[in-house]
């Protein structure tokens, strides 16, 4: 009984986490589902977003401006990966890994800006000392300071903006690039440019998620982004599996990634209450994603066999 009660008590926090990671999942959706690229930059750019935002806030910047700078920093990270991939011909996965590794060093430096030591592995933020847009401390509050309000609005704004963008000529050319590069080039689309653009937009969103996460959780640590890509994929896949049949519109597909993230965090909260250590979560997440990625493969095998059987009986 106690466990169930504590689970319900921690639900608002899980929803808050889910909304923030939902923004990140939308970023992953753009590269993984639309561009058909697995972009590993995100493990680094999530932390970069958090680092830039946290540093600027501790230096007394306006939190909105800090958020904007975090987005720009993430976009630059995406630009680097994009150029490594297109201009330098490095396979997308490797390009992402290279940027991610480089960002590790860079993030340690960013967090030490304005500090006496050359590098720093964590930064603390507190609603008492810093002006924060979202903080998990007020997640059960009934007032306007409840972070869930702002997070829901932020997610809605991101989805609306992307829905508009992917309906434009430029956005359509990005979708065509992921769907069929040959066709896109034959129709005069510079697929290198669209890939870079997709990576820039995606990592901008991931950094935004990192910036929100740093404020919400009250700290930014160098390890924050480790395995972020897998959590993002988990959210995308959970959302797809659960809502594929009902959500056909593009905006709803993005929403399903956010819902996937929220469900992911609810499940995580539950298993933590069941006695798992938080350090076990990466194992669990990896297992969940592996299983869901394997399902289509096994489904295909299974259904092919069935079709053959049917074919024989009709022959």
């Amino acid at each position: 009984m106690n466990m169930i009660q504590s689970f319900f008590n921690s639900l608002p926090n899980a929803i808050g986490q889910g909304l923030i990671w939902g923004v990140m999942a939308i970023g992953v959706y753009i590269t993984y589902k639309i561009l058909d690229i697995a972009d590993l930059t995100v493990d680094g750019s999530l932390t970069t977003g958090g680092a830039v935002c946290a540093v600027l806030i501790t230096m007394g910047w306006d939190p909105w401006l800090a958020l904007l700078m975090a987005i720009i920093a993430g976009m630059l990270a995406g630009l680097v990966t994009g150029l490594l991939h297109t201009a330098c011909g490095i396979p997308a996965i490797l390009a992402g890994i290279l940027t991610q590794l480089a960002l590790y060093s860079l993030n340690l430096r960013i967090m030490a800006i304005g500090d006496t030591s050359p590098t720093k592995a964590s930064l603390a933020l507190s609603p008492d000392r810093n002006s924060l847009l979202v903080s998990s401390r007020f997640v059960r509050s009934l007032g306007l300071n409840n972070p869930l309000i702002l997070l829901i609005l932020a997610v809605a704004a991101v989805i609306a903006l992307l829905y508009w963008f992917f309906g434009t000529e430029l956005g359509s050319s990005l979708r065509a690039t992921g769907s069929n590069g040959n066709m896109a080039r034959a129709q005069g689309i510079n697929t290198d440019k669209t890939k870079v653009l997709g990576l820039v937009v995606s990592n901008g969103l991931v950094a935004l998620s990192g910036a929100l996460l740093a404020q919400y959780s009250g700290s930014n640590t160098i390890d924050m982004g480790r395995g972020a890509i897998v959590i993002g994929l988990a959210a995308v896949i959970i959302g797809e599996v659960l809502f594929k049949k009902v959500f056909r519109n593009f905006a709803l597909k993005l929403l399903s990634a956010v819902l996937g993230a929220i469900i992911y965090y609810m499940v995580i909260t539950l298993v933590l209450r069941l006695g798992l250590e938080s350090t076990d979560l990466k194992l669990l997440t990896a297992a969940v994603v592996a299983v869901f990625l394997a399902i289509p493969h096994f489904k295909k095998k299974y259904f092919t066999k069935k079709a053959k059987k049917g074919g024989r009986s009709h022959a």
Partner: peptide
């Protein structure tokens, strides 16, 4: 619509 814009700049106008 993609083909109709072959050889043109792709902008932020409706696709």
């Amino acid at each position: 619509a993609l083909a109709a814009r072959r050889g043109q700049r792709r902008t932020l106008k409706r696709g």
